[in-house]
Design a protein around this nucleic acid. Structure first.
Lengths: 136, 136
DNA sequence: ATAGCTGCAAATGCTTTGCAAGGCC
DNA sequence: GGCCTTGCAAAGCATTTGCAGCTAT
C-alpha cells in the first residue's frame, strides 16, 4: 500500500507530506491513474499542458523530485539521455525497447515472456543497496 | 569468449575490427585488465591521464562508443546523470550503491547477498528487447 | 595515399537553480 | 504573515559533433 491509487491526488499528496498545490495535484492525477506508468519529465509536461494545465517544465522537474523523495515514484534504470520515472511500486521488472526508447511493465512473478514480435537481447539486474546502520 | 582478457589490447581491438590506435590501446589496457570493470567516461579519462596517456575526453567518448558497438562493453542500467559502462560480458548482475555512486559486480548464479554493511533497498530487472525480424 | 581517428572547442539536450511573485496553512 | 512553491530564464553538466591535422594500413 505505497501508492494508493484510490486516494484523491490531494489526499495522496497530503499523506506524503507534500503540499497539494494545483500543479502537483494535476501531475498526481496524471501519474497515479490506476496502473503504473513510466514517463519522463518532458513528456509529463507535455501531457499536463495538453490537459490544459499551465505549469512550467521546471515545476515538473521539481514536482517529480519531490514525489521521488516522498517515495511516490522512482527512477527507472534504463540507459539513455533522459530520466524515466516509474509510478508503480509493486512491479519492478521492466521491458526496455532500445530502438523505440520505450519502457513496458513486466508482469511480476511470471516467467519472462516478451511481447509478441520482440525477442530478449539482454537481461540486466540491478540490486540497489544502502549502507546498513550497524557498519559505520 | 567475448572479452578475452588474455589477448593483448591490440589483438583484442583488431579482433573486433577496431583500428588499434595508441589511445584505444591505452583505454583497452585500462578496461580489460582481468576482471570486469564499471566505469564512466570521465573517470576513465582521468585514469588514462594519470597513466601518462595524453588523450582528450572526446576521444574517450568516441572510443567507448566504438567499443560498445563492437560488443566489447555495454552500458549499465543505473539511474544517474552519468552513463556507466561495464567491461564484463559474463555477469549481468550488479549492486548499485546510490549514496556512494558505486557499482559492484554481483556473482552470477549465486543467491543475492549484499556485501557486509549493506542492505538491499530495491531490486530492479530490465529486460532489453529487440524487434524480432518476423514481425515487420 | 586514403580512410579512419584524434583533438579542441562549440553545440546540444536534459536537468537544476536563483530570484521574485504567488499560493497554501 | 510566513514559508513553501512556482515561473522564467540562465546556468550547469554530460555527451556529441564539426573540422583540421594526424595515423594506421
Amino acid at each position: 500500500m505505497r501508492t494508493p491509487a484510490r486516494l484523491s491526488p490531494e489526499d495522496l499528496l497530503c499523506a506524503h507530506g507534500l503540499r497539494p498545490t494545483r500543479q502537483r495535484r494535476a501531475l498526481a492525477a496524471l501519474l497515479f491513474t490506476g496502473a503504473g506508468r513510466h514517463i519522463d519529465a518532458q513528456t509529463l509536461h507535455a501531457e499536463a499542458t495538453r490537459a490544459d494545465e499551465k505549469l512550467s517544465l521546471a515545476t515538473v522537474y521539481n514536482a517529480l523530485r519531490a514525489f521521488e523523495q516522498a517515495g511516490l515514484i522512482h527512477r527507472v534504470a534504463v540507459p539513455g539521455e533522459r530520466v524515466w520515472f516509474d509510478t508503480g511500486t509493486g512491479a519492478h521488472g521492466h521491458f526496455y525497447i532500445e530502438t523505440e526508447n520505450r519502457v513496458l511493465d513486466m508482469p511480476k512473478g511470471a516467467p519472462i515472456r516478451p511481447p509478441a514480435g520482440y525477442r530478449v537481447t539482454r537481461i540486466e539486474t540491478v540490486v540497489h543497496l544502502e549502507r546498513a546502520a550497524d557498519d559505520d
